[in-house]
Simulated scan of single mutants.
Amino acid sequence: MRTAGIIPARYGASRLPGKPIQDIQGRPMIWWVYQKAIKAKRLDQVLVAADDERIMEECSKWKIPAVLTGTSHRNAASRLQEVSERIGADFYVQINGDEPLIRPEYIDAVIPETIPTEEEFGTNIIAPVASPAEVLDPSNIKVVFDSSLRALYMSRTPIPNPFLSIDVTYYKHVGILGYNKKMLDFYKNSVPGTFEKIEGIDTLRFLDYGKHLQFIVLEEVESLSVDTSKDLEYVRKLLQREKDIVETGNKKSR
């Protein structure tokens, strides 16, 4: 089984233009994501899927494998599908290019032991919601699933509703997903379904059409999508500490 980790990197983010190449401790953000991804034990290959020559130039400078994709993709799944036409693999893992705090074990967790080849199939990391504020926040996608962790629905609204019991654990979608080639091809050749158009959640496309999306639970996920300059400053401070710890450890080992 061959696995490929794809890091979609889009230059034109409205709130933080040039996000993938924003500087973090002397290196572009995409470098930090790549360094975390190549530490995943279950990936055979990692590369960046960029939509802009400026990202490609930074990748070349830092010796990061990258391919230039089209500019019309509206989401990561669509960009991954284009890459899947060039890079052969049994399973493609989406690693968001704006999460420099991602941990390699999260990436490994999204790759199943066996991958169905006769049907469209995907996986999605989910985690328990830590606070009531997260439950109510529409940017946190809540999920429900059956006894085998197969996805039933995703919503910006808190689900399930605690009508008969308040003994409920809410789970949220985490942006680490994996797809076989059939699932990516389905996405390219389909149109948004009923609930995707209502909720504005791209991943609902698979559930609208009854495709197999398998949830994988991690009890604790620590990561941050860098969407604003405030997020960027926060990550810079955290990674400075990480850099200091590594450098101090290297000095002691000499």
Rank of each mutant, 00 (worst) to 15 (best):
A76P: 00
Q94G: 01
Y92N: 07
F91C: 01
V93A: 04
G88L: 05
S78K: 10
Y92C: 06
P100M: 11
Q94L: 15
S72H: 15
V83S: 04
D90M: 02
I87A: 00
A89C: 01
I102A: 08
Q81W: 13
N75R: 12
N96F: 09
T69H: 03
Q81D: 05
R74D: 09
Q94I: 15
A76R: 15
P104I: 12
A89G: 00
V83N: 03
P100W: 08
Y92V: 09
G88S: 05
A77D: 06
D90L: 02
P104H: 09
G97V: 13
D90K: 00
I95T: 10
I107V: 13
R86N: 06
R103F: 01
I87G: 00
S72Q: 11
G97C: 09
P104E: 08
E99P: 00
L68I: 09
R103C: 03
R86Y: 03
A77V: 15
G88Y: 05
V83Q: 04
I107T: 07
D90I: 04
N96T: 12
R79C: 11
E82L: 10
Y106P: 03
I107Y: 09
T69Q: 05
Y92P: 10
I107W: 08
L101W: 04
T71G: 09
T69C: 15
I102F: 06
L101H: 01
T69D: 06
H73A: 15
R74A: 14
P104T: 11
G97M: 05
L68Y: 07
A89H: 01
S72M: 12
D90W: 03
D98C: 11
S84Y: 04
I107A: 11
T69R: 07
